[in-house]
Structure formats: C-alpha cells, structure tokens
Amino acid sequence: MMIGRLEGKLVEKQPSWVILDIQGVGYEISLPLSVFAGLPALEEKLILWIHQVIREDANLLYGFARLEDRQLFRELIKVSGIGPKVGMAIMSAMESSALLQAIQQEDLQALTRIPGIGKKTAERLLLDLKDRLKAWQPQQMAKLELPLGAELPAIDPRAEAEAALVALGYKLPEASRAIAAIAAEAMDTQDLIRAALKSMAK
C-alpha cells in the first residue's frame, strides 16, 4: 500500500527532513527547503502530500505542502538522470512557480543556476518537460499566503546550504566540513552551496 498523504503532529524538524508522529509512530519525511520555511511550531498539526519510494534497502518518504508541488516533483523525476535526491535539490533551489516558468520559457540560464545542475541536465529538463508542462499555470503553483500576522521562521543559510548538499547526495559530515571551511560571512545560501561544491570538486 502506497502512502499518498500524512497528517500528524510535528515532533522534530530540520532543513531537509521532519518527523511526523501519527498515533505513536514517527514517520521521517524528506522535504524541500521551501516547505521547511513554512513549517508550524513543534507539537503542532502538519499535513503533507507524500511521494513514496520503496527500494530493497529503504522505504523513503518525500513530503510537500501542496498536491501540485508533489505532481511537479513527480514530473521532474521522470526525466532521465533526475532521481528523487536531485529532484528535491531542484525544488529546494527554486519555488515551484519560478521553476515551472523557467521550464515553459526555456530559460536555460535560470536552470543552470541551480546547484548541481549543469547545462546538459538543464537542456534535458527543458526537452523532456516543456511539452508535458505546457498547460500548467505558474500562478496556480504560487506559494500559499501565510495567515495574517504569521512570520516565516528564520533559517540559517549555512543550515540551508548543508541540507541542499545532503539532498544532492553528499554525506552529512562531508557537507558540514565543506560549509564550515568557508570563512566568508554574510554569504547567502546559494553562494555557500556554490563555494562548497567548488571546494569539494578540487
């Protein structure tokens, strides 16, 4: 039986994953950074749309705040060479509406700015997805408005960058060392990711 949606109590959250308690069972769910930014406080109710991947050695859950975001993720991972980890990294780097617009407008430059996405991968994304997503409306993928008076939690750019590197397939200790080795302060998440990728490629 495949899991498509989960509703439970948020008991732990990190930039790349959460633990959702459902009747005493804790489900570990990977999620894009855009979802993490809008998470409620611990012990509050959380609903996520789930994409499940069952392998011989693992049962993996990927969570999204909106059904449309999950569908976009599923379209991404249909592209040759784009697995769930890379798909999550793409959706962490760009809001769904911006990603959809870049694909529909064949904006190669916008896609290659995503950490870990080179020109060939970006070209393959455009070739495979531009027709499939032609009828999708970017405004329907826009980020949901927060309730009146609500504020997004502050996120440490270094934590975001570390989570993005893990989503790209790097081990957590390796990602942590790479981020810690970058001495420059006041760098945003994207600059940190690029600098870390450059240092690890040496």
Rank of each mutant, 00 (worst) to 15 (best):
M2L: 05
I3D: 04
L6C: 02
E7N: 15
G8Q: 12
V11F: 14
K13E: 06
S16W: 05
I19M: 00
L20Y: 08
D21Q: 11
I22E: 09
Q23C: 06
G24K: 06
E28A: 01
V35L: 04
F36M: 05
A37L: 08
A37Q: 07
G38V: 13
G38K: 11
L42H: 01
K45S: 07
L46H: 09
L46T: 08
I47R: 09
L48T: 10
W49C: 03
W49T: 04
W49N: 08
I50L: 07
H51M: 07
R55P: 12
A58V: 09
F64W: 13
R66C: 02
D69I: 10
R70P: 11
Q71R: 10
F73R: 01
R74G: 12
S80Y: 11
G81K: 04
I90N: 04
E95C: 00
S96P: 08
S97A: 07
Q104V: 00
Q104H: 10
E106R: 15
E106Q: 15
Q109I: 11
L111S: 14
T112Y: 04
I114P: 04
P115F: 14
K119G: 02
K119L: 09
A122K: 09
E123A: 06
L125A: 05
L126I: 15
D128Y: 00
L129T: 05
D131K: 14
R132A: 06
K134G: 02
Q137L: 04
Q140R: 13
M141D: 01
M141P: 05
K143Y: 11
P147G: 00
G149H: 12
A150F: 15
P153G: 11
P157F: 01
A161W: 03
A161V: 05
V166K: 00
V166A: 03
V166H: 00
A167R: 03
A167N: 03
E174S: 09
A178C: 01
I179S: 06
I179G: 05
A183E: 10
A195S: 13
K198V: 07
